[in-house]
Design a binder for these strands. Structure first.
Ligand code: MN
Ligand code: MN
Ligand code: MN
Ligand code: MN
Lengths: 218, 218
DNA sequence: CTTATTTTTTAGTCAAGGCTAAAAAATAAT
DNA sequence: ATTATTTTTTAGCCTTGACTAAAAAATAAG
């Protein structure tokens, strides 16, 4: 059994090593956990003792298979709970992350199994992130960032990269949610800004908006 | 915001002062928390500083109104989650307590409100215990222990005092659940044992069984 | 290559929440 | 009214997971 703190570190390292390749730096872990580098060092040393990750002084950390398995289970719980909160309790997609951050630490295999069945074994959470199955396998999806599209291409929104309440609320205001079709009417190569069409509305979006939205082309 | 440990102590003290009258002894708290008296002393001193309870050295502890309010909210969450686990996820009544013990510590007022609505604002948990409303009011019920009935009286099971898995599984085996009618066919005054009728079955039960089952007469 | 800067680790401290052993107060038994 | 026993508190120590300040290693600059 892992403590709350350990679980949160493991999950953070898991997410960090998804993006960057190679070992995860202690500073990156500290920043992601909103703590100090010295604290992160202490924790990764402990987790290395427990064979949850491999750690080389001054080089960084990397989850072992064991560590990845633990992380995946937590991510699965987090995302299943988010689906529950949205689909069953009627929460809005910008309200669920903090609560799921707590719920992901409830220990009960039977609970996960039953919750999953109750929700109809969803493959994606309310932000479009894939929910790993009971064996830890993620559904692979073809998706790109809206910012990668060019003028007169279009895509269907399938998820968000950022899932802060602020960003999600912006998307709501613009009537963008998962499944929404987005046409790129224009793209400014100087700053990456775009003019897009959503439904009947046409408007300008900054690069920052465009590079946090996942779309499926095809 | 109160820590996990603080919340568990507050809830334990709340339950202890329901039965016994007057202040709750430090030893009783320690036993109920499965910890040592010295640890309980430390905690009640801290909770007294926080005005959650009044504490007099060598005399014991008593929750303040503030403390009772905190406790009631935790009990409400615990019991609502138990209803969720049984009604929605199909758990059996002897499997839910441990999980609810964790879920009761999730912090979100909105979550409690929505969960309550989702469950149809239940008044009782799966063990027949009343669920306090959002203002902390418990529904008062007329109930007595089965052991208080005499020969040829009858009652309808409305709850259990003990809710250990073992006891609940015994009741299952005997086909006793909430709503079951129980006839007292005989009572032995020497040891408090009884012969009861449940459905078409007649059998012997010990005093220990009889004094952990709540029934409603009339 | 040598120095400066950044990153990371170590050393030492702290609060929370446990523990054991000893002291003190309350209660029970002579 | 003492003495013995039980209950409760205090004192001191431990682990976890933070922190700061200082040292050490890695990296960047000159
Ligand atoms: Mn989330
Ligand atoms: Mn978390
Ligand atoms: Mn319970
Ligand atoms: Mn609990």
């Amino acid at each position: 059994m892992y403590s709350l703190a350990e679980e949160n570190y493991i999950k953070a390292i898991f997410h960090l090593q998804q993006t960057k390749t190679g070992a995860v730096s202690t500073n990156a872990i500290a920043e992601s956990m909103d703590t100090k580098a010295s604290s992160a060092t202490d924790m990764v040393q402990k987790l290395a003792d427990k064979k949850v990750l491999s750690y080389i002084k001054y080089k960084g950390s990397k989850l072992t298979e064991k560590g990845k398995k633990i992380a995946t289970r937590i991510v699965r719980k987090h995302r299943l709970w988010e689906v529950f909160l949205v689909d069953k309790l009627g929460f809005h997609w910008d309200e669920v992350h903090e609560i799921a951050e707590q719920l992901e630490h409830i220990h009960s295999n039977e609970l996960i199994k039953r919750l999953d069945a109750f929700l109809g074994s969803p493959a994606f959470d309310p932000h479009g992130d894939p929910i790993p199955d009971e064996h830890g396998n993620f559904m692979k999806t073809e998706k790109k960032l809206l910012s990668q599209l060019n003028k007169s291409q279009y895509g269907v929104c399938v998820g968000v990269k950022e899932s802060s309440a602020e960003y999600l609320q912006y998307l709501d205001k613009k009537k963008i949610s998962i499944g929404t079709k987005i046409n790129v009417l224009g793209k400014e190569f100087f700053d990456g800004s775009m003019v897009i069409q959503v439904g009947r509305d046409q408007f300008f979006i900054s690069k920052q908006i465009a590079e946090n939205l996942y779309v499926q082309t095809n």
